Amino acid sequence: MTPFILPTSDKDFAEQLIRQNMSGYYDQLDMHWDSALFDSEWRTLESYQLVINAHPVGLLCINQDTEACYIRELQIAPQWRRQGLGTAAIHYTVDRARKLGIDTLRLRVFCINPAVALYERMGFHIRKTEDNTHYMQRRIF
């Protein structure tokens, strides 16, 4: 299934989806949501909704520097997972990075998150692991 990937400024949708998806990991890792940090980071990101049938079902947030393009958030609503939406979002990010002349993608993911398998299938490898987090990277050719 191919979603429309559209720019968004809907911070409330983004925060709700992230909190819904990540609460189990936060609980397991004894972490707490920081709304002030989310607010400050939200302003620095290019944010996109993944839309199916005119309904937002996912979120992609990216940013870049001279070294790499970073996937800062990739969240899919639970009922829409395992339908290719994450893959479509990664392909979108690859295309975006190419247009910017960037040849490296990076992301962070909790070690206990099953999305690690998706990222590995998409060509990412673990650069380092620190504080229950994998730092992953892939080159764009």
Rank of each mutant, 00 (worst) to 15 (best):
A117G: 06
L60D: 00
A97Q: 02
F110P: 06
N53H: 10
L45C: 03
T104H: 13
Y26A: 15
E130N: 09
T44E: 15
N113S: 05
S47L: 10
D10M: 07
L105W: 06
I90R: 03
L17H: 03
D30K: 14
F124R: 09
P7A: 06
C61H: 04
F141N: 14
D39Q: 06
Y92N: 06
L85M: 05
T104I: 12
L74H: 00
A117S: 12
R19Y: 09
L60T: 00
D131S: 10
W33N: 02
V57I: 15
C61V: 01
I76G: 01
N113F: 07
L100M: 14
R43T: 07
E130K: 10
S40E: 15
Q20H: 07
F124V: 06
T133A: 09
V57C: 12
S35L: 04
H32W: 10
D65E: 01
T93A: 10
I62E: 00
T133G: 10
Q79C: 02
E67S: 07
E120G: 05
I140F: 00
R81H: 02
G84Q: 08
P78D: 15
P78H: 10
S40I: 06
R82Y: 13
Q20E: 13
G86M: 11
L118C: 14
C61M: 05
E67F: 02
E46G: 02
R138M: 12
S9Y: 08
S47V: 05
S23H: 04
A115R: 05
C61N: 06
F38W: 10
D30Q: 13
I140G: 02
Y70A: 03
L118T: 14
V57H: 02
H32F: 13
R139C: 08
A77D: 11
D27H: 11
D10F: 04
R96C: 07
G58R: 02
M122C: 14
I62M: 07
L50F: 03
V116T: 13
F124T: 03
R72S: 04
D103Q: 08
V109N: 11
Y70P: 05
T8P: 06
T66F: 09
E130V: 14
S47K: 13
D30V: 10
F110R: 06
A117E: 09
Q137E: 10
A36R: 02
P56T: 05
I90M: 05
I140Y: 04
S9V: 12
E15W: 08
Y26N: 08
H55E: 10
R127E: 14
L6W: 04
L45V: 00
L118N: 14
D95W: 00
C61T: 01
R81A: 01
R43K: 15
F13L: 13
D65S: 12
Y48K: 00
F4L: 15
V116H: 05
S23C: 05
E15Q: 12
R82W: 02
D103T: 12
I71T: 04
F110D: 14
A97L: 04
D65W: 03
R139I: 05
Y48A: 00
A97S: 14
G86P: 06
R127N: 15
K99E: 15
H32S: 14
Q64D: 15
E15D: 03
